[in-house]
Design a protein around this nucleic acid. Sequence first.
DNA 1: CGCGACACTGTAAGCGTTTACACTAGCCCC
DNA 2: GGGGCTAGTGTAAACGCTTACAGTGTCGCG
Lengths: 348, 348
Amino acid sequence: MDGTRSAPRRAATVKDVARAAGVSIASVSRVINGTGPVAQATRQRVTDAIARLRYVPHGGAASLVKRRHGVVGLLLPALPAEPFAELVRGIEETARRQGRLLLVARIPDDDGESLRTVAGLKGHVDGLLCMAPHLDTGALARLLPEDLPTVLMGTHATADQGACVIDNRGAVLELMGHLKHTGCRVVAHIAGPAGNHDAGEREHAWREALARYWPGVEAPLFRGDFEEASGYAAGCAIARLETRPDAVFAANDLMAAGAMRALLEAGLSVPGDVAIAGFDDIPLASLLRPALTSVHVDVAELGRRALARLLEVIEQPELSRERIEPVRPTLVVRASTGAAGAPTDSRV
Amino acid sequence: MDGTRSAPRRAATVKDVARAAGVSIASVSRVINGTGPVAQATRQRVTDAIARLRYVPHGGAASLVKRRHGVVGLLLPALPAEPFAELVRGIEETARRQGRLLLVARIPDDDGESLRTVAGLKGHVDGLLCMAPHLDTGALARLLPEDLPTVLMGTHATADQGACVIDNRGAVLELMGHLKHTGCRVVAHIAGPAGNHDAGEREHAWREALARYWPGVEAPLFRGDFEEASGYAAGCAIARLETRPDAVFAANDLMAAGAMRALLEAGLSVPGDVAIAGFDDIPLASLLRPALTSVHVDVAELGRRALARLLEVIEQPELSRERIEPVRPTLVVRASTGAAGAPTDSRV
DNA sequence: CGCGACACTGTAAGCGTTTACACTAGCCCC
DNA sequence: GGGGCTAGTGTAAACGCTTACAGTGTCGCG
């Protein structure tokens, strides 16, 4: 009936175990870590004592002397959540397989606070994984501590320390090629927020594809913020256009979904009147009606790869790294761009 | 051994700062933490030295003596990702506001490994937030270390230490009342995985509502696993039933989405032939067509509340806690259950 | 003038581990 | 039987920080 956990008793330490087992703390440590030789009888006495006292080693103390925390930090942007859950999963999974824990921190908007946050990480993590498409290289350099191994994820390919990148450009070109192939003639773009690195790359690649596949054709650009509402707004604007584009490429799926909603509500058919494609291939994409053509980014894989790289850097900081292979996203064609065989009967 | 290797120069410590500033390490510490009196001149010399050496304090060392890490651990189930991103966000936000970091670990399926994972947390975190609807109370008790303040989230209302709970029952009753009100006569249920606490509560509440609103009426139950595919399978089965229910309540949105897809593909209309409702109100719910009626759970709020509670427990472990207020989910009626005014024209 | 109060500073003892090193046996082999 | 092993053990010094405590010197005030 006492309800609350009994917690007053100070937790046992190596000393307690040593005393209980009648050995020195060194032997206890040796038993726990399997370092150095220990007589069978001693080992037994120690393990018994550990069990009896419910001893759990204090990781923090160990990391102080080992200069290794068994923890990696993950820095994420403060803003949208969608593809990050997968990222965290991929990273946490491989981290645990390597016996490491994961410390997650979002980079606050406030510059000073983010600095403090990152500084607080020192002495808690062995290295840093950082995904910050909303920061430019300068801000990034200012933010990251110099004595902490760091791997950048996402893009920022220009940054030195072999970042793990996504091939935005290649993916967009492929997607635009697909639209060209299905006969689209004017492909509008709903871009992500200004200053966002991924958004910038996708927009740039859209322009490049425009010039390559539809030379001389003008296509409208709408600026969004990666949220559904901004896609909806763009969709409404598109529906009202006198010369309406017959395809829309949105810089992420959420905005594509918003645009689709707007167009359908305006009485247009997708992809009959307007084809729509997104980016990221979040779970939502396949569940929309019509299902959304998108670019699948295996963020979990990206995370795994970045973490593997980080561990390399941690283990052997002196090695010079060769360029890392970019993660190649794959185009997933669905009904929203009139995939053959997929149901296109989504007229409202 | 040659020392000519590009020495990764050991990071500066208090000692280095002290020497550079010509003071004792105690004074350096006092300046950094603002404890004790320091002469203006000394303070200046120390801050200068800190800046010059780019000194960043080693948090781990400090936590060893302060017995306070400034880190809280978050334990999550290994399985589905959907509502957890929000949870993490809510928690991380309040944690940072309190100057704490967040350590995220997923509970692996393997029993032994999860034990090791949790044990590894000791000495790195001040307390634990745990959401584990897939574990029963026994497994939970075995898993959690006794000397670490812990707050359970989600349900497990039976567990002692004032857990932060969601009122599943109340929400389901309200939802079922809504279905009754709109004239549904047979409400099938697509349940979550056996052994999952939330799934169990929702199923139980469904039965209770059945008995209350439709006494004597039999309604079919399908068991899913919270994934879209299992909802789809259930939907297919429902479409083939000779006496088809005219409403489906799925234990989460993903399964509801799957069921909807199946029913629409089978040529049925939603909500005309079959109304559908889900649970969680993930972003997807409002984007489906027809938009999905669901129960909105403010998981970010849940996280905030749980963390606040945890901090209380950490600060004053001796206080006995009164029962915590459950987070009250809210019903969000949309087109899939024929909301008045919402578009119901989703006939395929 | 002496004494307590005060502001400031330094010394050193931890916090809970790991680990270099020194030490004891016992054993094998010349 | 003594010189080397090696297996097994303990002692004590770190790791980078905080903080109790013990000084200093300066000042005010009786």
